[in-house]
Design a protein around this nucleic acid. Structure first.
Lengths: 219, 219
DNA sequence: GACTCTATCTCGGTA
DNA sequence: TACCGAGGTAGAGTC
C-alpha cells in the first residue's frame, strides 16, 4: 500500500464530472490498484477515487488513472510531502453477524413468532421474479409469503406485493397473503403495507438470539 | 491525519458484531476523529471503521473507539510498524456537476421542454409518501406529476406510479398523469412505464445546459 | 455479463 | 433529531 501526502488538485470525468481545488491530501494506492484521495475528515469515504481494475500512469507532477469504461481521474501534484510504501499481505477478511440472512434463518426455525400457528413450508421459495424468503401456512391452512428485512421500507412492501401477485397465479397456492417481518418499519412503509393489505410485524432480533441461546442451554 | 501501519486484530460491536483476525493493516485516524482500518485491497471501503463523533482511548497495545449510540471498536495492536502524523488543513471540498438536483432545477424552469404547453405548479409537491419532483399542468389544464431521474429505472417508474395513485385520491387534482424525465432509460423501464401508462421522456442534459448558457449570453 | 438486492451503506436535505 | 431519497453508490449472489 502506497501512501502519498501531497498538495494536489484533482479532476474526475466519468459518471459525473468533479473537481477538487488545490489542497493537501492523502493519496492511497492499494495493492489491487485502486486509488483513493482522502481529506482529513468526512468519514471513511474518499473525496475521489478509482476502483480496480484500472491503468495508473505516474509522472512526477501528474498521475492519470483510467479504466475501460472511459472514466478518468487526473491528479496534479503540486508538492509531495511524503511518499511511503508498505507490504501488508493478504487479509483474512471480516467475520460478520447480525445480517438479514441470520434473521431469516431464525424466523425459518420459529415462524410462530410472527403469528400464532404459522408453519414453514420452505425457505427461498422460487418464483419467476425471484425467491420468496419464507413460504408458510397459517392456522387456517392459508398460504403466507414472508419477506424478511432488517429495515422494512416502501420498496420491501412493493417487492412482497410483486411476489404475492405472482404466487396468486398458482392455483395450488392462492389465495396467498403477505407478512413483512422487519426489525424496524418507517411510517411511510407502514402506510404502503396497509394500502397493499400486507401485515407488517416488527421483530426483535436480539430477543430472538437470546431465546435461541436459552434453548441451547436447556438441551 | 494519523497513519499507523500495524499488525492488529479488531472487534466491532454495534449495528452488527464483526471480528478481524490478526493481520497487517493501515489504521487511519482523521482530524475529525473518525477511525478506519484498511486492508491492501477491496476498493476504498475500509474493513472496519467508526465515524465521528466518537471517543478514542489509546493504550500502547489496545485502542478503544466508542460513540454515544453504544457502538464500540476495539483494536488490539500486536506490532506497530509505522506511525506518522500529517497536518492537512481544511479541504475546500468537491465541486460536482451533472446531478439530479441540477436537472430538476433546469426542468422546473423550462417544463415545456418535456411537453408542449407544460407549466409548473410547484417543485417538491408533498404527498404522504414523499414529495413529487414537479407538479405541472398540461395544455388542457390536466395535472401532470413529473419524476426527474438521471437514469430512469424500474424503481423510478414504480415510484412515480405510487405518487400518481396518491395524487389521484385528491379530488382537486385528479385525474393526474405522469411523466418520467430521465437522461437515459433502459428498455425494461420503458416497458414498465408503458404498462403503467406513464410517459417517458429522454432529456438531453448537456443540451439543456447549453441552452441555459446561450440565454445568459443573450441577456 | 447483466440483473437483483444488501449495506455498520454514506451523504445531504428537511421537518 | 429522525426520516427520506440519491449515490461515480459498492459488493455479493444469481442466472
Amino acid at each position: 500500500m502506497r501512501l502519498v501526502i501531497a498538495r494536489c488538485s484533482v479532476d474526475y470525468e466519468g459518471r459525473l464530472t468533479a473537481h477538487l481545488p488545490e489542497a493537501t491530501r492523502l493519496i492511497m494506492v492499494k495493492a489491487d490498484g485502486c486509488v483513493a484521495i482522502h481529506a482529513d475528515g468526512g468519514a471513511y469515504k474518499p473525496l475521489n477515487w478509482m476502483n480496480a481494475p484500472n491503468m495508473l500512469v505516474t509522472e512526477p507532477d501528474r498521475w492519470e488513472v483510467s479504466n475501460s469504461s472511459g472514466e478518468r481521474l487526473v491528479i496534479t501534484l503540486h508538492e509531495v510531502i511524503s511518499d511511503t510504501d508498505h507490504f501488508l499481505g493478504e487479509d483474512p477478511g471480516l467475520l460478520k453477524d447480525g445480517v438479514e440472512a441470520h434473521l431469516q434463518a431464525l424466523l425459518a426455525e420459529k415462524p410462530w413468532i410472527l403469528e400464532d400457528g404459522l408453519k414453514l413450508i420452505r425457505r427461498e421459495y422460487p418464483t419467476d421474479i425471484g425467491p420468496v424468503d419464507l413460504l408458510c401456512t397459517d392456522s387456517e391452512g392459508r398460504k403466507v409469503a414472508v419477506e424478511v428485512k432488517r429495515r422494512g421500507e416502501i420498496a420491501s412492501v412493493e417487492q412482497l406485493a410483486r411476489y404475492l401477485e405472482r404466487l396468486d397465479q398458482d392455483s395450488r397456492l392462492r389465495p396467498v397473503r403477505g407478512i413483512l417481518a422487519a426489525q424496524s418499519l418507517p411510517p411511510q412503509a407502514s402506510v404502503m403495507a396497509e394500502a397493499r393489505n400486507i401485515d407488517a410485524v416488527i421483530v426483535d432480533y436480539e430477543g430472538l438470539k437470546e431465546a435461541e441461546s436459552d434453548e441451547l442451554r436447556l438441551f
